Amino acid sequence: MERQDYQMPTLLRYENVAWYENGRVRILDRRIYPRELRFVECATYEEVAQAITDMVTQSAGPYTAAGMGMALASEQSKHLADQARLDYLRAASQKIANARPTTANRMTLITEKCVAVAEEALANQQDPTEAIKQNTIDSLNRRYFTMDKVAKFLLEKIPDNGTVLTQCFGETIVGMLLREALNQNKTLRFFCAETRPYLQGARLTASCCAEMGFETTVVSDNMIAYLMEHEKIDLYTSAADTIAQDGYIANKVGTYQIAILAQRFGVPYFVTGIPDTDKKSHEQIKIELRDPQQVLELNGIKHTLAGVKAIYPSFDITPPELIGAVVTDRGIFSPYDLASYLKENPTNTFY
């Protein structure tokens, strides 16, 4: 398949997400982009796992970093006999997949597939490192291709000259929506919620929108009610780190409160993504609690007195009654009818 990152903004070109080469994994540091264009180089799979934990990359970026990290683990273990090498890769799979707990289920699908690819390569006397790297590229192609379908369905729901409110950085769907709008000569403008404390909406989503030539405005997270009252917002949309089968979704903290405001002001909220086959209920979703120090400072500058406390839940869970629809590669589904999607697609090959 042709590489699917054509016409993509800087953040979404494959080599700028995560890339294995010559015994290193290079990951574009999204914590400082676009202020700086700098890469973190990982010499071991443990360093890749730590980079994922530290949010060097986020959104769908860790899925790619995980695959490239597994290629690195294969290179690290090349001196071992085949069975010992597979055992090493299984340990790496466990470490990388659990770098962030809320998405461990999706990450496990990726890393376990890498182990299976390595096992097949070894059985055929092929290089497992290259096989894992190629599998990761194939996965990227598949994800971009799939999300392009999602983008087409989502774009149908946005009028020409329409205004879209985003939350956090939906990675692939953001790039695909922008590319598809350009291909259809559809004019859109974007309001990007800033998304504290890491500012992914301001730094990442807004950067992609502006780079692709769209009118882009950043608003802080506490301006949403004002925005909806004084601007015509046609659609609020976000991706989801988990879409449970009972219609609840987990996404960057703040998604829930914007959904409440969207309902209050009559703005439709469309979630994009693929329902998770292993999440029957939202009660299975584990919310990651991150270092509260990240709330007490911004860009390394403290803005509270000593002794002030903070909390940092990285995600929140939005209930189905606030979700207008879940937009998938197979069309648009009610959050109360995700079983219909899963009936047609019972096994998740997206990752």
Rank of each mutant, 00 (worst) to 15 (best):
S139H: 06
C208I: 02
Q200I: 00
R290P: 04
D329F: 04
D329G: 09
M68E: 15
H303K: 09
T111N: 01
P34H: 03
Q184F: 08
G307P: 08
L11T: 01
E21W: 06
K286A: 08
P313L: 08
Y248Q: 05
I323P: 09
A151F: 10
G170E: 02
R142Y: 13
L289T: 12
G213H: 07
K343L: 10
T102F: 03
D278L: 14
N22G: 08
V174G: 00
I173V: 15
C168T: 09
T10A: 04
A84S: 09
E297Y: 04
Q4V: 02
A239T: 13
P275E: 07
Q76G: 07
P128A: 05
S207Q: 12
Q7W: 07
L298Q: 13
D127H: 11
M8Y: 03
T237N: 07
R38S: 13
F350H: 15
G324A: 14
E120A: 13
L109E: 13
Y312W: 09
T217V: 14
T136D: 04
Y45D: 01
K280N: 12
L177V: 13
I243N: 10
G170I: 01
N135E: 15
N299M: 09
T108R: 08
L227D: 10
R26I: 05
A60R: 05
D221R: 06
L109N: 06
K280Y: 00
V271M: 02
Y6L: 11
Y336E: 14
I274A: 04
E211P: 07
S340V: 12
L338T: 00
I287D: 00
V115Q: 02
F333T: 03
A250M: 08
A310H: 10
D337W: 00
T277F: 10
Q257Y: 07
Y63R: 03
K113E: 15
